[in-house]
Design a protein around this nucleic acid. Structure first.
Lengths: 236, 236
DNA sequence: CAGTGGTCTAGACCACTAT
DNA sequence: TAGTGGTCTAGACCACTGG
């Protein structure tokens, strides 16, 4: 682990363990430099990381302060992390409805940046959190990248398998969010009524080299859909 | 304007003007250093900024590439920018329903970090975008910070006035997002039916020194509620 | 293994905050 | 105006990608 990541992690742990609150002051730069025995730039990089994550804020001429929101139970939506791993703290299970190799829809081909004659894995799932329906999901995986999937893999974490099993490096994603109403089919899978609200997300995941490998359309149970965004500076 | 911001802006303009697409390669670091006559760290900082914004991605050992999503008409939701200024490109107007000085609700006092006996400005508005209803909004401003508001200010951009008129520096915000159903009152103001979906956002805005000055509860017309998140690395 | 991006340093100098 | 964070430099060295 890199120095600046290590230091960021340690500072975060420190804040956690000492139960520091919003506005509490951290040691000044010089102290931190001495304490961690690194140069100013390295400390600065650590602090910038924590600032991005919404853990602290820095005020030139004044100091470094803890930043914290008080509410629990929200999914953190950060531009540099995507949906956080918070979900994994809960018991998430999946029921596989369909899994096969087929040709992509024109829409899927477009988003995966492939021809409509190339193979993809098609996966349809319903996911549950603590026994309640979480989302209904249709996914398309570029088969020339994600070369193999089976029922076992798909009913657990596909992404974990992609990283660990296939050794691929996931880089970044584009998420498109809408609010809408459940269709009959979605409502049935989510055990809700048609016409009720849904959070609908289309996502495209890319490897670190920019190749898209997964295009998914997901409808979330609105009762489970609450998240927090910690925003920083403003260009407004 | 700082060097690294200036350079980032120029690179972004360059991408725009040359209509570069996802995957197009930018010059290597050494070239950029020479071209802008700055040190490596400065270029790196510019590029990191652009990477955060989702404009490029960098691949060690390979190069610097353009990153772009194709869809238009989405509000960009970035952790380091909040809701982007995209909205200002459209014609947004406001109708003020209520505006007065009063005592905060316990909830507002809690979120503004003040006592329930201190004064706040209470504002209720409906906002329109291109003639359609955009959102219904209830806001509480800490009067000891936002010392004056009137109908004229409130029917235009309150934040613009806070920055320019009052000379305050806005630092960061916490947004809490939910999906839900419109109440009778909200539906009436938004010219929709009760029970239809809504995007509901509670937001708390802080000055650069961490003081909260605005607590707002906003219900968005779901037809206007679509946004994009460009996420980067993964801790998953 | 050549090319390229990433980390880290030591230090000069600048800009903002609070008193 | 003292204290504190932010920018920028020049350069050494490291780590990854792809032919």
């Amino acid at each position: 682990m890199l120095k600046y990541q290590q230091i960021a992690a340690e500072i975060e742990t420190y804040i956690e363990e000492h139960q520091l609150k919003q506005g509490d002051k951290l040691p000044v730069l010089e102290t931190l430099m001495a304490q961690f025995e690194v140069s100013k730039s390295t400390i600065t990089k650590s602090l910038d990381l924590l600032e991005q994550k919404g853990a602290i804020f820095q005020l030139r001429g004044s100091g470094i302060f803890v930043r914290k929101h008080k509410r629990k139970g929200y999914l953190s939506l950060l531009s540099n992390q995507g949906f956080k791993k918070d979900l994994e703290d809960f018991n998430v299970t999946s029921k596989v409805i369909e899994l096969d190799v087929r040709k992509p829809t024109p829409e899927a081909a477009e988003n995966l940046n492939i021809g409509i004659d190339e193979d993809i894995y098609y996966v349809k799932r319903v996911r549950y959190i603590n026994g309640q329906t979480l989302c209904y999901e249709e996914s398309y995986y570029n088969k020339s990248i994600v070369t193999y999937l089976n029922n076992e893999i798909v009913s657990h974490s596909i992404f974990h398998y992609i990283r660990e099993g296939l050794g691929l490096k996931i880089g970044f994603s584009d998420l498109f969010l809408h609010v809408g109403q459940l269709t009959e089919e979605e409502a049935e899978y989510l055990e809700l009524e048609a016409g009720l609200p849904k959070l609908y997300i289309e996502s495209i995941f890319h490897l670190t080299n920019g190749q898209p490998f997964d295009y998914s359309k997901i409808s979330y149970n609105y009762e489970q859909s609450q998240f927090v965004v910690q925003a920083n500076s403003f260009l407004l």
